[in-house]
Design a protein around this nucleic acid. Structure first.
Length: 827
RNA sequence: GCCGAAGUGGUGGAAUUGGUAGACACGCUAUCUUGAGGGGGUAGUGACCACAAGUCGUGCGAGUUCGAGUCUCGCCUUCGGCACCA
């Protein structure tokens, strides 16, 4: 006979067995069913980089628990998985190893898919998609064409952020501290043509709808709000003296307009050249522009440049005062924001103040704090609100009121109007890369830019089925480039840019609702049933880029008639990082833990359990090898509790009346129901699986102790406790629970079972501990029946020996009784 | 500089939302299980004190309250985001 204490749960065979059943029986395959309530759980899909890491394990485990839990709650749950498969690493790997990016990508997908299956994740694999597959990107190309038709796509020449090492353009969002987000090399400016999505057309809605995202972390909403960066102000024309030109400025401080003492233009501003041309200043200006551009390029991360500028030789006129002020080109004015021209009010803007001091320009105070009179020399700009002084007819007004009045005045006189400006800029999507979705347009010498006709889609990436290393950027693919113009049938050439990979990930969640639809990007009926995503889960690193683009795409697809929703993700959970030795796990730090090794050694359930138990999902998870042992020990403890019951036979006796049970049985039954409540609450409130697990541990500890002590627990009560334990743990450790459930004789699997019901009556405590405080300090504890009344509690408290001693005869001033909780005696 | 989040034992983290601070777990100590092995059981484990009694304890300082980890105000520290945005 084997020593029961050494008996262990054989995870390897068990996990293989259930994974086989899931693959064959497809219990997680779903179809739309309008009669049932749907629930869409989605984890951010992975880039097929090679193998999964602990961050993936954590992300997908969280999603899987939610999916399984919601199924037990009766929802029709869609839980898909796919691959964000275009991108630079495939090209780099291909170059390095002389294989085709497609081969590298699909090999990785095959490997990683097996890894995910080994984790026991409950995906509907029939919905799997890979964005590099023409059956996916052809619809993206169609969406592009529809957007082009609607004027939401345009081509322009711009200065772009160019990464030398990746040899591609980067979106502004992909430039981090002046370096490439991917390779960390410095980014340089470069002028070229590129395609843009008019995301700024949606800036207002993207901002306004943030208020609808009540299921998102506040932090993410705030980050998006700041990123969109709406400011309200005045656009105003300052005529150039002696010329019919004018300088248009944007300001959020129209109330300071009487304090303008000069004008600053960005060095890139076209007027800089024009105004100085042919004057004695021309050479100096040109030199200044040249050096500033170089300096800006080199600008290191957090350093602000010293304020520098050069007089253009021109003056312009303040339309409010007619006053003549000098026009400068300045290094601190951004061409990309507002109009690239700034009215300078040194008294009320620190940058202008610094500049004025450096160049000996006048500083004129026009706003004062209400109380303060005297005119001592300003030591720095006063930027707070206040009362206007020396401001013509607006003098004496409050600065907030003056903003409005001044805008009105400008509008009435035709030299300005209210204007809203955004920090957000249009999304540059052109990439000079091979491994991406081709942009479906044709350049014709005669007809210009011609969209590829819909029936010619997809524009297939050349060589995808020829893994022979022909993966050069598209502009070297002469076969691909040469085509005929759809309009005039003359010789023409294809666009060689591919789309930013963020385009693929901006709508994949919608495509999951109809991955095989062969007639349209989306099947409106499927989309209407399944969308929006009810719960989205992923890392906070996507708080701006991916989530903003997806929101934008959702609105575009709505306006194109494919969707009927405004927002893609109802609830968002941003999971924390996996940390080891105080740092995020990464290859470069050499602190990675390989999920494969863990699963091999402990089994998927143990790994899942640990990652859920060690921290709540939104917090960083500190990796701890001993914690994994602990998770493994717990499962074995449950196993040892269940195994004897399995051997005792498979009858499931009915629960006798509670009054007939002995105290240990009643206690276990009570604890069982308390645990159902605790676990349910933990999951429902904020997916705090760590506390859910600890509640089950308490239940298991109690049951184990009762059994070990030889207490006569009614078989029906123990049985119900174990059934419940397996139901509650199932979403977290599915193979384990299914196996044990089968062992104790159930023929219906947990996949077909409902979440246990909580019985408040059964959970109610018979006796409670009431604390007795004197002046707020705990002095005694009373064990009393749960229904003891207030008066009786007070009497019991006062009669308590220790309380008597503490009071030492002092007369209570006040006694506070909180039912079922405490008595506080104030003396 | 601006915005946001977080500070609780040796460690990860609990605390019914104003009512027993430290659940659950890891680690550690002692002990039992024929000696060891990532096994099991029992007891202990916030600090001070030789125990007990007691005192002190949730980043710091005030405040509200019978009662504060929780609420208010003011600081400090750490982390994240944005950053010459006019």
């Amino acid at each position: 006979m084997e020593n029961p204490s050494s008996e262990r749960y054989e995870f390897k065979a068990v996990e293989a067995k259930w994974q086989r059943r899931w693959a064959e029986g497809k219990p997680y395959k779903v179809v739309a069913d309008p009669a049932r309530k749907k629930y869409y759980v989605l984890e951010m899909f992975p880039y097929p980089s090679g193998r999964i890491h602990m961050g993936h394990v954590r992300n997908y485990t969280i999603g899987d628990v939610i999916a399984r839990y919601k199924r037990m709650r009766g929802y029709n749950v869609i839980h898909p998985m796919g691959w964000d498969a275009f991108g630079l690493p495939a090209e780099n790997a291909a170059l390095k190893r002389g294989i085709h990016p497609a081969a590298w990508t699909y090999d990785n997908i095959a490997y990683m898919r097996d890894q995910l299956k080994a984790m026991g994740l409950s995906y509907d694999w029939d919905r799997e998609l890979a964005t590099c597959d023409p059956s996916y990107y052809r619809w993206e190309q169609l969406i592009f064409l529809k957007m082009l038709e609607k004027g939401l796509v345009y081509r322009k020449e711009t200065t772009v952020n160019w990464c030398e090492s990746c040899a591609t353009v980067l979106a502004r969002e992909q430039v981090i501290d002046g370096c490439c987000w991917r390779c960390d090399q410095p980014v340089v400016p470069r002028t070229m043509h590129g395609w843009f999505f008019r995301i700024t057309d949606y800036a207002e809605e993207l901002l306004a709808d943030l208020d609808k995202l009540t299921g998102w972390p506040e932090k993410v909403v705030t980050m998006q709000r700041n990123w969109i960066g709406r400011s309200q102000g005045l656009a105003c024309d300052f005529p150039v003296e002696g010329s019919d030109r004018k300088i248009t400025i944007f300001t959020t401080r129209p109330d300071t307009i009487y304090g303008v003492t000069f004008m600053s233009l960005a060095v890139e501003h076209p007027l800089v050249e024009q105004l100085s041309a042919g004057t004695e200043h021309a050479a100096a200006v040109r030199e200044f522009v040249r050096t500033t551009l170089i300096e800006k390029q080199r600008k290191s991360l957090d350093e602000e440049l010293d304020k520098k500028g050069v007089f253009t030789g021109a003056y312009c006129l303040n339309p409010f005062t007619g006053e003549r002020v000098p026009v400068f080109a300045a290094n601190f004015v951004l061409m990309e924001y507002g109009t690239g021209a700034v009215m300078a009010v040194p008294a009320h803007d620190q940058r202008d103040f610094d500049f004025a001091n450096a160049y000996n320009l006048p500083i004129r105070e026009v706003i004062r704090p209400a109380a303060q009179h005297p005119t001592e020399k300003l030591s720095q700009a006063y930027t707070e609100p206040g009362v206007l002084v020396d401001s013509g007819p607006f003098t004496g007004m409050d600065s907030e009121a003056a903003k409005e009045a001044i805008i009105k005045h400008a509008a009435a006189n035709g030299f300005g109007q209210a204007q809203v400006t955004y920090r957000l800029r249009d999304w540059g999507i052109s990439r000079q890369r091979y491994w991406g979705a081709p942009i479906p347009v044709i350049h014709c010498a005669k007809c210009g830019i011609v969209p590829v006709p819909e029936e010619q889609l997809p524009v297939v990436l050349p060589g995808t089925d020829r893994p022979d290393g022909s993966h050069a950027p598209l502009h070297q693919q002469t076969d691909f480039i040469a085509t005929t113009c759809p309009t005039c049938a003359g010789a023409a050439r294809r666009e060689t840019d591919t789309m930013d990979t963020f385009v693929e990930s901006s709508w994949y969640f919608a495509r999951y609702t109809c991955p095989d639809c062969a007639t349209s990007p989306l099947d409106p009926e499927q989309a209407r049933y399944w969308l929006p995503v009810d719960q989205y889960i992923g890392g906070v690193e996507h708080a701006i880029l991916h989530l903003l683009y997806s929101r934008f795409f959702t609105k575009v697809l709505r306006d194109l008639g494919y969707l009927n929703i405004d927002e893609p993700f109802r609830n968002l959970l941003t999971q924390g990082m996996v940390i080891k030795d105080g740092a995020k796990m990464s290859k470069s730090k050499g602190n990675v833990v390989d999920p494969n090794e863990l699963i091999e050694r402990y089994g998927a359930d143990t790994v899942r359990l640990f990652s859920l138990f060690a921290a709540p999902p939104e917090r960083d998870l500190e990796w701890n090898a001993q914690g994994v042992d602990g998770a493994s020990r717990f499962l074995n403890k449950v196993y040892r509790l269940v195994a004897p019951v399995a051997q005792a036979g498979n009858t499931s006796p009915a629960l006798p009346p509670l009054e007939s049970l002995n105290e240990p049985s009643r206690a276990l039954h009570r604890k069982t129901h308390q645990t159902i409540k605790k676990v349910t609450d933990s999951i429902e409130s904020n997916f705090h699986f760590n506390t859910a697990i600890s509640a089950v541990m308490e239940l298991v500890n109690l049951a184990s102790a009762l059994v070990a002590d030889g207490k006569e627990v009614a078989p029906a009560v123990l049985r119900a406790c174990l059934d419940t334990t397996l139901l509650l743990l199932f979403p977290m450790v599915p193979h384990f629970c299914e196996e044990l459930r089968e062992m104790i004789g159930h023929d219906r699997s947990l996949d077909q079972s409902s979440w246990p019901d909580f019985d408040a009556e059964a959970a109610r405590e018979e006796a409670i501990t009431v604390i007795v405080q004197v002046n707020g300090k705990v002095r005694a504890r009373l064990e009393v029946p749960a229904d003891t009344g207030d008066d009786e509690l007070q009497d019991l408290a006062l009669a308590d020996e220790r309380i008597q001693k503490t009071l030492a005869g002092k007369e209570p001033k006040k006694i506070i009784v909180v039912q079922r909780k405490l008595v506080n005696i104030v003396v």
